[in-house]
C-alpha cells in the first residue's frame, strides 16, 4: 500500500484537535466579546443629571448646537499650595525649563497656562528624560495633588508675568453611553472627522506625522484632556482657539471622542481599530491559516 495507507484506523487526534481548536477559538472570542451594544436596550436615562436639565428635547431632524459648553477649573491661589508646587517644580522640572519657568533646554513656561501643565502632567507626557524625545502619553509621574500644586505654581508664575494662558476646561459629563439625550454627539462627530481624524484616525487609534512624530491614540484620554489638547495644542499638534472651535464645539468633540473610545466595537473584537491592514492580517493568518489547518485534517498529507 501507499505510504499514506489508511488501512490502520487512525486515532481521533486530527478531528479532536480540530474541535479543540474550535473550542479554544470560541472561548478566546467570547473573552474578546465587547459589551453587547444594542441600541434598544441602552436607551437608559442620561447619566448627566443636572448639567443636562437645561437642555430641552431636541426636535428630530435638527442638530442641537450649543447645548453644552466648557467650564473652567478654578486653580488654587493658596500660597501654601503654590509653595508646594514650586518645590516639586524645582525638583523635577527646573533642570530643563529653567528657574521660575524662564526656559532653558526646554521651552519657557511663562505663558503656557494651567491647561497645558495639567495636560502634560495628567497624561504622563512630562517629566521627560531627554528634551529630544517626543512627549508621549504614559503613566502619570505625579499624583493628583502634586499636579494641582504644580499647576498652581505655574499659574502663579504666568499670572505674575501678565500672560495667564489657557485655563483648565471642564466638559460637562454625559454621553458615555449611547443615549437619546446626547445631541452633541453628531456635532462632535462632524467636527472630529473634519479637524482631528486625519492625524488621530477616524477610530482615534492614532497615526504618524512627518519627521517621526507619533500621533498618539485617544483611547486613554479623558474628556478634560481632550479639551485641553484642543485648546493648548501639544506640539506637533496645532492648537485650536475659540475662533476656530467654540467652547461648545470643543465640548462636543470631547464628548464624541469619549463616546468613540468607550462605546465598544459593535462588530466584535476591534483588532486595534487600525483599519484594513490588521483586517487583512487577520484574514490571511487567522482565516486562511485556520482553513489550511482544516484542509490538512481533511486531506492527505502524503
Amino acid at each position: 500500500m501507499t505510504s499514506h495507507s489508511t488501512s490502520r484506523p487512525r486515532i481521533l487526534a486530527g478531528p479532536a484537535a480540530l474541535v479543540a481548536v474550535a473550542l479554544a477559538l470560541f472561548s478566546v472570542l467570547v473573552w474578546a466579546l465587547p459589551a453587547p451594544a444594542q441600541p434598544k436596550s441602552q436607551l437608559k436615562t442620561s447619566q448627566s443629571g443636572a448639567s443636562q436639565s437645561g437642555v430641552s428635547k431636541v426636535a428630530a431632524g435638527t442638530v442641537a448646537r450649543g447645548a453644552k459648553t466648557l467650564g473652567t477649573v478654578k486653580v488654587s491661589t493658596d500660597p501654601a499650595v503654590i509653595t508646594a508646587g514650586q518645590q516639586l517644580y524645582n525638583l523635577h522640572c527646573e533642570s530643563c525649563h529653567g528657574p521660575g519657568g524662564v526656559g532653558a533646554k526646554a521651552p519657557q513656561l511663562l505663558d503656557v497656562g494651567p491647561a497645558a501643565v495639567d495636560f502634560m502632567l495628567t497624561t504622563g507626557r512630562m517629566p521627560l528624560n531627554s528634551v529630544t524625545q517626543q512627549p508621549l502619553p504614559g503613566t502619570p509621574y505625579f499624583n493628583k495633588t502634586e499636579i494641582a500644586e504644580i499647576v498652581a505654581y505655574i499659574n502663579f508664575v504666568d499670572v505674575s508675568h501678565g500672560t495667564p494662558g489657557v485655563g483648565i476646561p471642564t466638559v460637562p459629563p454625559s454621553c458615555t453611553k449611547e443615549s437619546a439625550t446626547c445631541p452633541t454627539l453628531s456635532e462632535g462627530n462632524e467636527l472630529f472627522l473634519m479637524n482631528c481624524s486625519q492625524c488621530h484616525d477616524a477610530s482615534g487609534a492614532g497615526g504618524m506625522l512627518s519627521h517621526g512624530y507619533v500621533v498618539p491614540s485617544l483611547r486613554q484620554a479623558t474628556k478634560r484632556q481632550i479639551a485641553e489638547a484642543i485648546r493648548v495644542g501639544p506640539r506637533p499638534m496645532p492648537g485650536f482657539g475659540p475662533g476656530q472651535l467654540t467652547n461648545q464645539e470643543v465640548a462636543a468633540i470631547a464628548d464624541y471622542v469619549y463616546y468613540l473610545t468607550h462605546s465598544g466595537n459593535r462588530g466584535g473584537f476591534g483588532i486595534a481599530n487600525f483599519g484594513p491592514v490588521p483586517e487583512g492580517f487577520v484574514a490571511i493568518i487567522f482565516g486562511l491559516g485556520l482553513l489550511l489547518l482544516v484542509a490538512r485534517v481533511i486531506g492527505n498529507r502524503g
Binding site: S197, G267, P276
Partner: peptide
C-alpha cells in the same frame, strides 16, 4: 471580529481624511 466599521469613518466628504487610509489587503 469587527471589519470596516463604516459608522466610525462617517459619510464620505472630499475635505475629510483619516489616518490609516488603506485599501483591503
Amino acid at each position: 471580529v469587527q471589519i470596516n466599521p463604516i459608522w466610525v469613518y462617517g459619510p464620505y466628504n472630499p475635505a475629510r481624511g483619516s489616518a490609516g487610509t488603506q485599501p483591503d489587503w
